[in-house]
Amino acid sequence: MSAEITTPGPGANVKVLRLERGWLQDRLAGKAGMSKSMLGKIERGERPLTQGMGAVLANAFGITLDELLGHAPVNADDEDRLTELRAAMRRFDLPTSAPVGVQQLDDDLAELFRLRGDADLSSVTHILPGLLRKAQDQAHATGRPEDWSKVADVYSAVYWLAARHRWMTLAELAVVKQRQAAERSGALALAVAARDEAGTFLNGGDFAGGLAVVDRAVVQAESTLHGRTRHLALGLLHLRGMTLAGRLQDKRTVAQHIKGARKAAEVIDSDANVQGVHFGPENTLSHIVATHVDLKKNADALTAGERYLRDGYTLPATRISPLHMNLARAKLALKDRDGAVDSLIEAWNTAPQMAKVHPTSLELSRVLVSLHKRSNPKVTALAKKAGIRL
C-alpha cells in the first residue's frame, strides 16, 4: 500500500522508506544505480526528486512510483462522497432510477468539465457520484452509443481526480469501467480511455508499459477514425506518449510523438475540449515544455513556455498551473532560485487545490524552502501554502 503524505515533498519519503528497511545510503544508491551524493541531495531537499528518478528509486525499493510519492489524504468532507462514488461504480451494469433527461445530463456534464478545467478538485469530488449514476441510468435506458460515451466521460473525470491524489486503486478501477463504457460507444471514446489507461502506467512508474498502451491505441485510431475526430484522438494519444517517452529519456520516441502531436494540432487549429480534455496547439506546447524539462533542455523549455504565457493563452487552470510548475523546474535547474519561487507561486495561485496535492509542486516547495537559507517573504509564503515548517 502507498503511504499517506505527512511531510510535504515526495523526496522526503525516500529517506523514510530507506530507514524503514534499515538500509544505508550506499545500499539504496547502488540498487538504484545513482551516486550516493545525488541520493543525499534528494533526501536533504537540495535537489528535487523527478518522477524519472522516483521510478528508479521505487524499483530499487520494490514498489511502484505512486507508492514512493505517497497519496494525498482524503479530506473529511470528501469521505462520504467517495464512498458514494465507489457505490455508483459498483452498479455500472445496474440502473438505479429513471433517466433525468438528455438536457439535464448535458448541463451537468458541462459543469463537470468546467470544474475540472478550473482544477476545483473538491467540487469535482462532490458532483461525481450523482452525475455518474445519472449517466449510467441514461445509457441503460437508451443503449445509445452517444450516451455510453457520456458514461466514459464521467469515468475519465474519476480517473483524473484519483490520479491527482494518487489514489491509484480508484484510478485503475475507473479506467476499467471507462473502457467498458467506451466499448459500447465508439472509437474516440476508446482512444481517450487508452490515454487514461496509459496514465495509470505513468503514475505507477511503468513508462515502457504506458508507451505500449499508447502505441496500440494509435494503431487502432489510425485504422478506425477519420477526419477531425481522428486527429483529436491521435493528438491526445501522442501527448501521453510524449510524456512517457520523456520520462524514459527516449529522445527518438519523444521526437516521434512531438511530430505526431504537432501534425494533429495543425489540423485542429485551435484548442478543443474533447470529453473534458483539451487538445490543440496550446496544449501540445505545454506538453513539449514539460518534456523539454524531463530531457534537461531547460533553456528551450523556458523560451517556449515564457513566450506562450506572454503572448496570451486560452488553456484552463488545470493545464496552466502545471506549466508554471515546469517553468519552476527549469529555472531551478538553471540556478535561478528566485525565478523558480515566482513560477511556483504562480502555479499555487492558478490552481491552489491542485498544487496542494501535486507531487511536483510539493517537491519543488520542499527544495526551494530548503535552499533559501536567508529570510525571503516569498519563500515564507510558499512554505505556508505547502504546509512546510520553517
Rank of each mutant, 00 (worst) to 15 (best):
L65H: 03
E222V: 01
V219C: 07
A333T: 02
L19E: 14
P352I: 07
P73K: 00
L390V: 13
G241S: 05
V218R: 03
G54T: 01
W23P: 06
W23V: 10
N203E: 10
K31H: 12
N13Q: 10
R27G: 07
D107R: 15
A72N: 00
V56C: 06
D250Y: 10
P129M: 05
S286V: 12
R184H: 11
N349M: 13
S270A: 13
A191Y: 01
A383N: 03
E172A: 06
V158I: 08
T125R: 05
A182D: 10
A171N: 00
E4R: 15
W160V: 03
G205L: 05
L234C: 03
P359V: 01
R116D: 09
L85A: 04
T284C: 14
A381G: 10
K356Q: 13
R319C: 12
R21T: 14
K15P: 03
K297G: 15
L69P: 00
L115V: 13
V341W: 01
M53E: 05
Q180K: 09
R166F: 10
T291Q: 07
R90K: 13
F61P: 04
V267S: 11
L68R: 04
D147M: 04
R252N: 14
A182P: 02
Q25Y: 05
H165W: 03
I127H: 07
W348Q: 10
E111T: 10
R90A: 14
T125P: 05
N349H: 11
K31R: 15
R91D: 15
N273L: 14
R366K: 06
L173D: 14
E79W: 10
K331G: 08
D80I: 15
R216C: 07
L39A: 09
N203A: 13
L364D: 05
K384V: 08
V369T: 08
R252W: 12
P352W: 05
H324R: 04
H238Y: 04
K373D: 13
V175W: 00
K384L: 12
P352V: 11
A333G: 08
G40I: 00
H140L: 06
G204N: 07
L327K: 04
R86L: 14
P95Q: 09
S156H: 00
W348I: 13
R144C: 04
W148I: 01
R91N: 14
N376A: 15
A386L: 08
A340Q: 03
R81N: 14
A328H: 03
Q180A: 15
G117W: 14
L362W: 02
R337V: 08
R179W: 09
Y308M: 13
V16H: 11
G9W: 02
A351H: 05
E346G: 06
L39I: 11
D300C: 12
H140Q: 05
H140T: 01
K296I: 02
P316Q: 08
Q178V: 11
G276H: 04
A233R: 01
R133L: 06
E197M: 11
M1T: 12
A87T: 15
Q104T: 15
S149L: 03
L121N: 03
H231D: 15
